[in-house]
Design a protein around this nucleic acid. Structure first.
Lengths: 241, 241
DNA sequence: GTCCAAGATCTTGTATGCATCAACTCGTTC
DNA sequence: GAACGAGTTGATGCATACAAGATCTTGGAC
């Protein structure tokens, strides 16, 4: 039954259905019917419809040909492409920030984040939680740094896909030691992206940010090789193999 | 009253409300209430809600902070950025098509379209309708040419904004003669983009496609200078000045 | 055996009434 | 006079009954 607590029925339905999609319990391509979902959640069809509409906005559902909704099906190639797309969009955000000049307040925040990330490497062991949070902060600020609402809007949307998030395939606690060089490299890129933006080097900032996304792709491929099966990774449970 | 004919009430509401947003009748930032809209359309609140949900997916509405919907507000800078973004995404589509190899069937179709566009310039006067249709075909094929569902999805979404479409600011019938050189230039870019993709020159294909979007930006600036006021242009009626 | 059509069934579309929630008003208290 | 809170208004949230449409089934003609 898994009654999620939420302010209202729509939010509860949204949360529940999203959880089941992300876990793979609702498989890609599967058609979603209002009545069974409503019964499962002990609510009426109305909030279920509302929740499905919002999930379509998020990109987790798609409207079926005639009517109704289906779970969007993702393959590994879509994961690759989504990461590539994030790189392209973050690259554009970085370039525009450099070319047009970024908000000093945001630049200061990003500088602080980069210093915080640098501090992670001072002693021998990297704190996963701290690095992960700092990494998310960096990318959140980068999204807003161009000052373009439109870019921010699209980037938010892409990053909302569970496997396209900047922290989706970070080395986890288990692999942290063996994959520390990956983090060191990624952090060097953070530093240089910020420097390029500050120096108004648009082209360099774009190239760096784009390449930076490839780190996620490498981490993904590394993780898939290790685990053998894609289903093991949290962000990858919904991917059809 | 303007009763739009449509298969059902939701589609009618969707069409009507969209029309009023695009025309600027419903202004950017304006909050939309279910009851007045329903009364205006002589239907109940239910299909109005459904229509508003879909317009949010299209990007014409945004969910208000607490609850409800508001018309999304666009400024001229958003138009500029949306065109820039289309250039970036079409550039990515072109690059991936070149790098990964494009579907021969689609390449053949695009070749046919480019030849059709070339034929527009054989005699002295350019047929606006034919050029416009060919231009749309070119960009529609380009969207699909990378073979990436994710890229196609995002590009479709951006292009759906009325001012980001590849044909939004084409010189119209009135300006066609005086601005013919713009079309000649744009068509040269079409030809070279296709050639670069065929030659597997990814970087060149990307740069060309990105620059090609600047044609739209120039056309926009040209048109705004001419008309003096932004409100005159069809795709720009909803833009807040 | 195949195709089509009529009916049955499953699913969504729509209207409506009541519940709930948020914002505002206005009066009270300190 | 400012802050707070109860009542009021207005908007959406939600459930439900019924309508309409889509799809599947079945029976019959050829």
């Amino acid at each position: 039954m898994a009654e999620a607590t939420g302010s209202n029925h729509t939010i509860r339905a949204l949360t529940e259905i999203r959880k089941r999609i992300l876990s793979g319990e609702l498989a890609g391509g599967e058609r979603l019917f209002e009545v069974p979902l409503a019964e499962m959640l002990n609510i009426s069809r109305t909030p279920v419809r509302e929740a499905m509409s919002r999930l379509a906005e998020e990109g987790l559902l798609e409207r079926a040909k005639s009517t109704g909704f289906a779970v969007r099906a993702f393959g590994v190639e879509d994961v690759i492409d989504a990461i590539e797309l994030r790189g392209v969009l973050e690259g554009t955000a970085a370039r525009l920030a450099a070319e047009r000049g970024a908000d000093p307040e945001l630049l200061a925040q990003m500088t602080e984040v980069v210093e915080r990330l640098d501090a992670c490497f001072r002693d021998d062991s990297v704190d996963f939680e701290i690095y992960s949070r700092g990494n998310e902060d960096f990318h959140r600020i980068l999204t807003r740094l161009s000052g373009s609402k439109i870019i921010e809007w699209e980037l938010d949307r892409v990053v909302h896909l569970p496997f396209a998030s900047p922290s989706a395939f970070l080395p986890d606690k288990v692999n942290l030691q063996s994959r520390q060089s990956s983090l060191v490299f990624a952090q060097a890129q953070h530093r240089e992206i910020l420097a390029a933006i500050k120096a108004r080097e648009g082209s360099r900032a774009e190239a760096l940010a784009r390449e930076h996304a490839r780190t996620a792709r490498r981490d993904l491929e590394e993780a898939m090789k290790k685990k053998g099966e894609a289903g093991q990774l949290p962000g990858l449970a919904l991917v059809v193999t």
